[in-house]
Amino acid sequence: MRKQLAKTLDEIMTFNSQVVVLIGDISHYLLTNIEDKFKNRFYNLGIAEQTLIGLASGLSLEGKLPIVHTIAPFCTERVYEQIKLDIGYQNVEVIIISVGASFDYAHMGCSHHCTNDISILRVVPNLDIYIPGSSFEFDDIIKKTIGNGRAKYIKLTSREHNQTLDILPHEMKIVKKGNDNKLIITTGHMLKDIIDIEQDSTIYYTNSITNLEVNSIEHLINDMKGKEIFVVEENNVVGGLGDAIFDLTKNKLNKIGIPNAFLDHYGTYDEQREFLGLTPHLLKKTIYGN
């Protein structure tokens, strides 16, 4: 997928003059053609990730379309507050493309693993998350979504699946309708593994983790009836795709708490609690209906 990155960036920089690519001293060797071609729109900003994200947000506030690229833990976990405030809270379109996936750099140890990016970024409001399963999907996702005003995190993986799917960003796609009692939902390159092992099961696939499109989820909910359900992903199961599906398919658990949005009012603690429906009076109303 990394080779596709060089090709795709070249193409989008050609058709959109606002795109600026910022790298944290990673993949430079792959991007030298872009560096030569777009002199003032490609910057290797070295090893200063927090500032890299803040700087990208500043570019975006001035109308640029910044694309930030480095190894996954360094552009997610390390810069979490910059993503939360400079990108999410300010609600600007910055595109972060990571490399290394969850453990593509297995031999390098945990410093270079990133199994939690999806979990921690799912709770940043105003950010869309994608795990493309193939080079084609990566190219398709970025071309279809660039310029839509939304911040994006795209997780590149070294492995790819071998399917050609007519899938849109934010779609939950049925890949196969099976006759046994199992339904498997997966994301990214793991689709290949699931297709390889499945017997006669129903398979759903998505390359988007956030804002899954309602109609496609309704199909999924319908097909889930009477099935044993598995969600398979190469992410931390706490907060990953499984949790996202759990929420969307409205299981019997009613979650009461803080929604995934910025609390962008001020006031007092009690006013916030009232707004969120967390006062005893409002909890009673939610739980008992009066």
Binding site: I53, G58, E81, D86, Q90
Partner: peptide
Amino acid sequence: IKASTGSLGHGLPIAVGKALAAKIN
């Protein structure tokens, strides 16, 4: 209000990005 601040150390990187955009433009 040109940046959402409060957590210290965020304004200057954003300013660097804005200054870079002005240079590009």
